[in-house]
Design a protein around this nucleic acid. Structure first.
Ligand code: MN
Ligand code: MN
Ligand code: MN
Ligand code: MN
Lengths: 219, 219
DNA sequence: AAATATTTTTAGTCTTGTCTAAATTTTAAT
DNA sequence: ATTAAAATTTAGACAAGACTAAAAATATTT
């Protein structure tokens, strides 16, 4: 068994390791957990003793398969709880993160399996992120940032890169939701801004927004 | 805000203080929390500093109204989660306690209010214990231990005193559930055992059982 | 009332998880 | 190849929450 703190470290390392194939750096973990590098070094040693990651001084860490499985399981719980909060308890997608951050540490296999069943075994969370299965496998849908689409390209909104409540509330205000079709109408080379059509409305999108919205291209 | 540990102490003191009007003793708290008296003394001082209880050395403690309100709120959460687990997630009444023990510490007013609403604002938990309202008021239904009933007295099963899973599973096996009518048919002076009629069956009940099942007498 | 037993508190220690400050190693720049 | 900068680790400290053993206070017997 792992403490909540250990689980948070594993989750952070999992997320950070998913992109690069090199070791995850102490500083990156510290930044992600809003803690100090020295605290990270301490915890890393403990987790290495527990065989969930491999650590070589000054070289960063990488999760063992045991560590990956444990981390994926916490992410599974986090995302299932997020779905539950939105689907069953009238939470908005910008309100779920902090509560899920607590709920993901509840220890009860039956609980999470029943939540999964109650929700009909969802595959994605409210932010479009995939929910790992019980073995920790997590399918990666191919998706592109809106900013990478060319004029006249179109697709479906399938996720957000930034899931801060300010960004999510902004999307709500603009009536942009996951599942909607979006087409690039104009694109400004100068600042990367674009005009898109969504919901039969043409709206202007800044580069920063376009860099945080994932689209599944239609062919 | 209180830590989970502080919340557990407040809850234990609330339960222990409900019967007696004297201060709750250090030893009683230690026993209830499976901890040592010295640990209790430490925590008591901290809680006294936080004004949730009054403490005079060697005299035991009693909760302030602030402390009572906080404790009642944790109990409210515990019992609402228990109802949720049974009503919505197919848990048996003997499986809910440990999970509720974790869930009661989740901090989110919206979460518990939505759970309350989803369940239709229940008044009792699966063990027949009353659920405090948001202000911490907790209505005490008048109920009697089965062991106090005389021959030919009858009533409805409304709660359990012991809610250990062994006892609850025993009741399941005997097909005794809350809400059922029960009549005392025979009573043995020697060992306090009795024969009762429930579900149109006559079954023999030991004194220990009769001392742990609450009945609401029908006049 | 004195002696004994029980309860409670104090003193000192331990673990977990965090921090700051200093030392060390690695990386980047001259 | 040095030197400077950045990243990382070590050393030492602290708070929370628990424990053991010993001291002090209260309660119970005789
Ligand atoms: Mn989240
Ligand atoms: Mn999410
Ligand atoms: Mn319970
Ligand atoms: Mn209960």
């Amino acid at each position: 068994m792992f403490t909540s703190s250990e689980e948070n470290y594993l989750k952070a390392i999992f997320h950070l390791g998913i992109t690069s194939n090199k070791g995850v750096s102490t500083n990156a973990i510290a930044k992600s957990l809003h803690t100090k590098a020295s605290s990270v070094t301490d915890m890393i040693k403990k987790l290495a003793d527990k065989k969930v990651l491999v650590y070589k001084k000054y070289q960063g860490v990488s999760l063992t398969s045991e560590g990956k499985k444990t981390a994926a399981n916490i992410i599974r719980k986090h995302r299932l709880w997020e779905v539950f909060l939105v689907e069953k308890l009238n939470f908005n997608w910008d309100e779920v993160h902090d509560v899920a951050e607590q709920l993901e540490h509840i220890k009860s296999p039956k609980l999470i399996n029943e939540i999964d069943a109650l929700l009909g075994f969802p595959k994605y969370d409210p932010h479009g992120d995939p929910i790992p299965d019980k073995e920790g496998n997590l399918d990666q849908i191919e998706k592109s940032l809106l900013s990478t689409l060319a004029i006249n390209e179109f697709g479906i909104c399938v996720g957000v890169h930034d899931s801060s409540s300010t960004f999510l509330q902004f999307l709500d205000k603009q009536k942009i939701a996951l599942g909607q079709e979006i087409i690039v109408v104009e694109k400004e080379d100068f600042d990367g801004s674009m005009v898109v059509e969504i919901n039969k409305n043409k709206i202007s999108i800044s580069n920063k927004i376009a860099n945080n919205l994932y689209i599944k291209k239609s062919q």
